[in-house]
């Protein structure tokens, strides 16, 4: 087995050099099935990092362990360390609620809550502010507008704020799912194949949006679509069978991969 530490050395310095996510010897089991093996990764702050690899390679599992949403299954066991902005999120004193405030997540299928567009945006604030002072309506309106403007949705939905979010198109729903994370001022956005349920046009619109958010947030995106990884990420991580095989600047991973497995996958020999 190649030393993962060696494989994980990023070969080029993209913008920003502080680390947003650092994992050390992260192992994860679903019951008795081990899904991650000694994952050591350094994800830089403020850039877009894509995770690629064949189905079942552990890329979604890895993503879902960065906000500990994996644990809702109940039979997941994790060892090792995951630091987000220098804080060990698996430390016993950590509150899950706070982890999720700082690490937002976008899912494969757009999953807006069965509430109005406006309430979807405010949901995060409401659950985190439970028991504290209430925001006045004006401030709420401001927050909704800011969030929707950031995801380029304000102009199209500003007249439907009171309507059920489930009535929007899939593209709008997925953008809304990104927008509702923003009022919590997260530092990291995790995206689990955010475009896989969308048609090509919607995909490129959402990709554009993700690119637009680059710099303000650290974005870690799982994708099946290699072209997407190539055109829409700064760095790229290739995983196989629960291990990190290669991590480097996207261009280099795609043009001059260091590992034979990476080359094979990118050329389409498997996966």
């Amino acid at each position: 087995m190649d030393s993962p530490a060696q494989a994980a050395q990023p070969s080029a310095a993209a913008s920003g050099s502080k680390l947003a996510i650092r994992t050390q010897a992260l192992n994860l089991w679903y019951d008795t099935f081990q899904a991650l093996f000694d994952v050591d990764l350094d994800v830089k702050q403020g850039i877009i990092t894509s995770l690629i690899g064949p189905s079942g390679c552990g890329k979604s599992t890895f993503l879902r362990s960065v906000n500990r949403i994996n644990e809702r299954l109940g039979y997941v066991r994790t060892t090792g360390r995951v630091d987000v902005l220098g804080h060990d999120i698996y430390a016993p004193s950590v509150e899950l609620v706070q982890v999720r405030k700082h690490v937002g997540m976008v899912f494969q299928r757009p999953n807006p809550l069965p509430l109005s567009v406006r309430e979807n945006i405010l949901f995060g604030l409401r659950v985190h502010a439970d028991g504290e002072q209430r925001l006045d309506r004006e401030r709420q309106g401001q927050i909704v507008q800011e969030a929707l403007e950031q995801v380029l949705l304000w102009d199209t939905v500003k007249d439907q704020l009171g309507e059920p979010a489930l009535r929007l198109s899939l593209e709008q729903q997925q953008k809304l799912c990104i927008a509702r994370l923003l009022p919590l001022k997260p530092s990291v956005l995790l995206m689990d194949e955010p475009c896989s349920a969308l048609d090509p046009q919607a995909t490129s619109a959402v990709e554009e949006l993700i690119w637009e958010l680059r710099g303000r947030y650290t974005i870690l995106i799982v994708t099946h679509n290699m072209a997407q990884a190539r055109r829409a990420s700064d760095e790229c991580i290739f995983m196989l069978m629960g291990k990190v095989i290669e991590h480097g600047a996207t261009d280099e991973v795609f043009v001059t991969p260091e590992q034979q497995e990476t080359a094979n996958y990118i050329e389409g020999r498997y996966g």
Binding site: N67, I69, R72, L96, V97, Q98, V99, R100, K101, G104, M105, F107, R109, N111, P112, L113, P114, F123, G124, V127, H128, D130, C177, R180, L181, L184
Partner: peptide
């Protein structure tokens, strides 16, 4: 279940 997952990922507690 997607609703629960979405709410949980936004930091909602089980009662919320």
């Amino acid at each position: 279940d997607g609703y629960r997952e979405a709410a949980e990922a936004l930091g909602a507690t089980r009662w919320q």
